[in-house]
Write a protein that binds this DNA or RNA. Structure first.
Length: 910
DNA sequence: CTCTCCCGCCACCCG
DNA sequence: CGGGTGGCGGGAGAG
């Protein structure tokens, strides 16, 4: 058949018209520099079949009938897509099974080509000729088929931060069909995603989607591993060598071939090859491992820039392959594959490093960075000093945080970036400088790393790279087991700093803001500044959580808000070190291990309930949190069950804490709010603008205080809160009643906590009574922050946090939906999917929303939302979700867990 | 040219 | 053993 098919295909294809020009550009852009929106995309949770509306944001999906079609005008889209599609159609005709697939595919098709489709459709509609042109043009350019694009499509199907309750399984076949590609390609994507624990294999052909919840943790673990392996040194070394070589040999491009020599040199340092540690079995060379190592390189790199040649060399070296040119080429190819996926995840972007000799392709890390730094430091200290963290510890931690703030909190991003840049430039190891601006990562990282290194060194030998071999490839990759540090971390997060922290934070913030200036622009993070082509859009990345930590992170947040998805923001997420337990699970290096670990994890997980909570925050796109106990409460959502002793009555506590937190927040928040939303969008309601303007006055002067923002995972960051109220004092009123803020903002309780009362401030165009209940029609409100720029967009929904986004948009802000704000829409859509149930409610009465706060208990869908935790890695049993909220869910979880276990085996190769 | 990286053969390896 | 996985590298599009 295939043969025949091919033939047919050829005939048919002969050129389907794809138009994708516009799209292509976009693609290119993305690919090249960018980042992606995937996060924003709507999630479709279940792939399974249905096309869901998914919404794909922009695209409209024309489709549903996929089928065949004749080429024609009607459905231009349908037809042409890709040759592959055609082929499939043909095939389907032949076989029923296939046909089914086709159908499915068809459903999805829109997705696949959404962009294209979108464009096409527009064009077509507009211009009749286009159709013809299309045919003519038809080139399915390579770009269209690129792995990066494919990956984006893939990611678009799933929520970045799926609710803990929703377990999404990915059927490779389905995906392949829906995306119109061969399965082989899906493997490439999945393998990379798996390396980051975004997915895990469940069974044959089946993967479970975890989302980004644990990404910070995973990254942290990888960073640690990278440090242990001394990748940084290796990189520096290679770079130097190269430079030297280059210098000596000027023009020759032997580079390609050269690697050998270099490699050898490296080897010298380290050790002679190690033939085998684990012999590199196929696994060692797997894309998964390569991916992890590649990520590690970024994480340990001070510059956060990794050139492909260096990465390839290191990989070759590790693999012990004899370095030959072909190997090098192969490695590079693989790295591109990985890079495409990572780029789609908005973790890296392409840049070019200009060395003395020319440009070299490289990638820059734009994902979260700081996790390791501040928190770790703290953690570390605490861990080392106080094995057991306790309240007291917190105190210490707080102190540290304060200090840190003092030192860095006010740090101007720009300054930071400059410094970094300087460092980079001066650094011998990093001969090149980025074309763009340097990222504004915290400077501390380096120092921290140094510290770590030392520690490590102590244990390990003097040899530079000896460490590397130490790790078994696969296992090593996985995240480290939870270390005490983590625990500390977690605690830190979890409980964070209570008031003290807050106070500190406030202060810092002010100073910070002052220094930075309110303008968001000013605050632009370096990375963003860099600008290559980065689009601001990225900011939206829903996926990236902002910093939640009060102290240090604040500034990051600030930056993030402004910028949006700046890498820095991501870093914030990192902090979540709290994910201890998660770590454990995830850490288990290989997936397989993970699975196994599941059991082990459980125990660990127990403690973590709180952690998770913290994590949740982290995960949540924008979460500024004020830690406090309340946060813990959030955990509710956390899947993991509490251990026996665990936090017992979380719920109660949560409630209380939440309230208190809310109060505090309200009180504290004094400034104007700033909200940033992830999505930048152009559109905003006029009203909003007004409000914003009004706010502006306020804003400018003050600074922002913040608030906390938390967005439920599913929401993608939509919830932000800000406030700035003048009223510093906390309002006493428990849940619902908070003092009204002069500024129009709503304070949302942490998503997780459903209980929180929402605060809404009336400044809005419509006068609203401050009383919560009173809120009239507050539908979702958008805030535009002037300072933030058009990009910033805030939507607030009266309803629970959860829905607001989606529903809000749809109902209230049509504008948002406008094409212009594509980004938003996608997001929105996503949330929709996830939350759908709620949406209806929401739509109905905004006001009612307020009530939401009520008791969390309800099993209603809403409640579900809260739980967005990550389920992922955890093994099933361990998942606490159920626990948290309602015990009801457990059953489901168990089931899921079972699956995972199954998975494990397969993946678990180890 | 070089940079990217798609494509798909075919080896592994698991069930 | 069959089929799911996925290493691998030729070769071609894009710049």
């Amino acid at each position: 058949m295939e043969v025949n098919c091919l033939t047919l295909k050829d005939l048919i294809n002969p050129r389907q018209p794809r138009l994708d020009f516009a799209i292509e550009d976009g693609e290119n852009a993305q690919k090249e520099n960018i980042f992606v929106d995937l996060s924003r995309m709507a999630p479709k949770t279940p792939i399974k079949n249905e096309p869901i509306d998914l919404s794909k944001q922009k695209i409209f999906t024309p489709e549903r009938n996929p089928i065949t079609p004749v080429k024609l005008v009607d459905r231009q889209q349908a037809e042409p897509w890709t040759p592959t599609a055609n082929l499939k159609m043909l095939i389907s005709a032949a076989s029923p099974d296939i046909r089914d697939r086709e159908k499915k595919k068809g459903l999805f098709r829109p997705i696949e080509n959404k962009d294209d489709a979108f464009t096409d459709s527009l064009q077509l509609d507009v211009v009749g000729d286009s159709a013809v042109d299309e045919f003519e043009k038809q080139r399915p350019s390579r770009k269209q088929k690129s792995l990066g694009l494919l990956c984006q499509k893939f990611l678009a199907r799933y929520p970045s931060y799926p609710l803990s309750t929703e377990k999404t399984t990915i059927s490779l076949d389905e995906v392949a069909v829906s995306l119109g590609v061969e399965r082989r390609r899906i493997y490439d994507i999945v393998n990379v995603l798996e390396s980051l624990h975004l997915v895990s294999r469940v069974a044959k052909n089946q993967y479970g989607w975890h989302g980004r919840h644990s990404l910070p943790k995973t990254l942290r673990s990888l960073q640690r591993l990278g440090e242990e392996q001394k990748y940084e040194e290796q990189m520096a070394h290679l770079q130097q060598k190269e430079l030297e070589l280059m210098d000596y040999k000027l023009g020759e491009r032997k580079k390609d071939g050269c690697p050998d020599s270099q490699d050898q040199q490296l080897l010298d340092f380290s050790e002679p090859d190690y033939p085998s540690s684990s012999a590199n079995s196929r696994k060692d060379k797997s894309l998964r491992i390569m991916s992890q190592k590649f990520v590690m390189l970024f994480l340990v790199s001070k510059t956060k820039i990794v050139t492909l040649d260096v990465a390839a060399k290191i990989l070759i070296e590790e693999s012990q392959d004899a370095p030959d040119h072909s190997k090098f080429k192969t490695k590079v190819r693989r790295l591109y594959d990985i890079a495409n996926v990572l780029t789609s995840l908005a973790l890296i972007k392409k840049v070019h490093v200009t060395e003395e000799r020319g440009r070299k392709p490289a990638f820059k890390w734009i994902g979260p960075v700081d996790f390791s730094s501040s928190d770790e430091e703290l953690v570390d200290v605490s861990a080392s000093v106080l094995p057991e963290l306790k309240r007291e510890t917190y105190g210490q931690i707080q102190v540290c945080a304060k200090q840190r703030l003092a030192r860095h909190g006010s740090f101007n991003t720009v300054q930071a970036s400059e410094r970094i840049q300087r460092k980079v430039n001066s650094e011998p190891s990093s001969p090149y400088r980025e074309e763009q601006g340097s990222g504004g990562y915290s400077l501390e990282i380096g120092s921290l790393a140094a510290v770590y290194r030392q520690k490590i060194e102590d244990s390990s030998q003097g040899k530079a790279f000896a460490g590397k071999r130490v790790m078994p490839p696969s296992s090593s990759l996985d995240p480290v087991a939870p270390s005490p540090t983590l625990s500390a971390d977690s605690e830190y997060r979890v409980n964070p700093l209570a008031h003290q922290v807050f106070s500190v934070a406030q202060t810092d913030l002010q100073s910070f803001s002052m220094q930075n200036g309110l303008n968001a622009q000013a605050g632009v993070s370096p990375s963003s500044a860099a600008s290559d082509g980065e689009t601001p859009k990225p900011a939206l990345l829903t996926g990236q959580p902002l910093v939640y930590v009060p102290s240090t992170s604040l500034f990051m947040l600030y930056g993030n808000l402004q910028e949006g998805p700046s890498p820095g923001s991501g870093s914030g997420s990192e902090r979540d070190g709290g994910s201890l337990e998660v770590t454990a699970s995830e850490q288990s290096p290989t997936p397989s291990v993970q699975k196994r670990l599941g059991e082990e994890r459980k125990p660990q997980e127990e403690e973590p309930a709180t952690k998770r909570q913290s994590r949740d925050y982290d995960d949540s796109p924008l979460a500024l949190v004020m830690p406090k106990k309340p946060s813990d409460s959030t955990d509710i959502a956390s899947p993991k069950t509490l251990g026996p002793g665990g936090s017992a009555p979380l719920e109660d506590i949560h409630m209380e804490s939440q309230l208190s937190a809310a109060e505090q927040a309200s009180g504290k928040a004094s400034a104007n709010c700033c909200v940033s939303s992830e999505w930048g969008n152009s559109s905003r309601d006029a009203e909003v603008e007004k409000s914003s303007k009004e706010n502006e006055s306020t804003k400018e002067p003050s600074l922002l205080q913040y608030l906390y923002v938390q967005s439920p995972a599913g929401l993608n960051g939509f919830n932000v809160l800000l406030s700035g109220s003048q009223t510093p004092h906390p309002v006493g009123p428990p849940s619902g009643q908070l003092p009204s803020l002069s500024i129009p903002c709503m304070v949302l309780p942490s998503p997780t906590l459903g209980t929180f009362p929402v605060l809404y401030s009336p400044t809005m165009p419509r006068p609203i009574s401050s009383a919560p209940g009173a809120i009239p029609n507050v539908g979702p409100v958008n805030f535009g922050l002037p300072g933030l720029g058009s990009t910033a967009h805030l939507l607030i929904g009266p309803a629970n946090m959860v829905n607001p986004k989606s529903s809000t948009l749809s109902s209230a802000d049509p504008q948002l939906q406008c094409p212009g704000s594509l980004n938003l829409s996608p997001v929105m859509s996503r949330s929709h999917n996830t939350i759908q149930p709620e949406s209806p409610m929401y739509g109905g009465h905004p006001v009612s929303v307020v009530k939401l706060q009520q008791s969390p208990v309800p099993v209603t869908p809403k409640s579900i939302r809260r739980t967005h935790r990550e389920t992922f890695f955890k093994t099933p049993g361990s998942l606490g979700d159920p626990v948290l909220r309602r015990r009801e869910r457990n059953p489901s979880r168990n089931t899921s867990s079972a699956q995972r276990r199954l998975e494990i085996p397969s993946s678990g190769a180890d």
